[in-house]
């Protein structure tokens, strides 16, 4: 049976995120969150593989408890079960410490295939996938657009800037799904009802995982925020035209000609 683990991150759904200037970590209070949209694409790919070849899809998230709503969302899409990895001891992690905890969680779950999103919309590092693969010492490929099983191996396709590549991966392996390539399926009432009845979400704290305090959270993070500064605004002319569109066009074209940006 194919055991697929999908990583999803619960991210603030706004552009007005604030950072606590003292700790350098996110202030999440009062900001509505969503499942990172690119992780829904990862969920979609995992579900397609399961639907085609059988198996089980488990979603995991390392997050404050409010991420339960995100796990319920992907259970509604058809994910089989989920683990909420939540403990104050994990807070303030950079990507190294995040990937460490996730790798340990995945190891404890057992897995054949790990599917991640390409990157998150909040800090967008695209680090965590490669780091998890490194901790687990398994093969990995980013930016996957298509995946299928053939003789127990995973055949994946991906595109880089100028080449298209096809790789064969032995399981266990990790892939990250190219963003903007899959349409995540909708939540279905029947899945939601099942999730309600069976409540397949487990919560794991560091009591279950027993990780060294020095390897997790702030302490397990080599990077630290030392300062935040405003980006200086680029000075611009700020000339504005209001009125008839034809006159507006004439005004602009004259300006561009004046500046040598348009040849006559």
């Amino acid at each position: 049976m194919l055991r697929i683990v999908v990583g999803i991150k619960w991210v603030p759904n706004t552009t007005s995120v604030n950072i606590d200037p003292k700790t350098g970590t996110l202030i999440r209070e009062g900001i509505p969150s969503v499942v990172n949209p690119h992780d829904l694409e990862a969920v979609e790919m995992a579900l397609r593989l399961r639907d085609e070849y059988g198996g089980r899809v488990t979603a995991i998230t390392m997050s404050p408890p409010s991420a339960r709503a995100g796990l319920e969302h992907v259970l509604g899409m058809g994910v089989d079960d989920a683990v909420l990895v939540s403990d104050r001891a994990f807070a303030g992690a950079d990507t190294l410490a995040t990937s460490y905890v996730l790798a340990k969680v995945i190891e404890r779950l057992g897995y054949d295939l790990i599917v991640f999103g390409q990157e998150t919309i909040d800090s967008s590092t695209a680090h965590v996938g490669a780091q998890v693969a490194s901790w687990l010492d398994i093969p990995y490929v980013y930016y996957v657009t298509h995946a299928r099983l053939e003789g127990g191996r995973l055949i994946v396709r991906r595109s880089l800037e100028n080449v298209r590549e096809t790789y064969e991966l032995e399981l266990p392996a990790l892939i990250s799904v190219a963003m903007h390539t899959l349409h995540p399926r909708r939540v279905r009432l029947s899945h939601k009802l099942r999730a309600k009845l069976e409540s397949p979400i487990e919560t794991w704290t560091n009591r279950e995982l027993g990780l060294e305090p020095d390897c997790i959270g702030l302490k397990g993070s080599p990077t630290a925020l030392s300062k935040i500064e405003m980006i200086p605004k680029v000075p611009r002319k700020n000339e504005i035209f209001r009125g008839d569109p034809r006159e507006a066009a004439k005004w602009l074209v004259d300006k561009l000609i004046e500046e040598g940006l348009l040849e006559v």
Partner: peptide, 18 residues
Amino acid sequence: REMAPYIANSFRTGITAD
């Protein structure tokens, strides 16, 4: 972007993205 975090992890060091 695919390699960089793997290299950092092999050193067990941090990495700043972009």
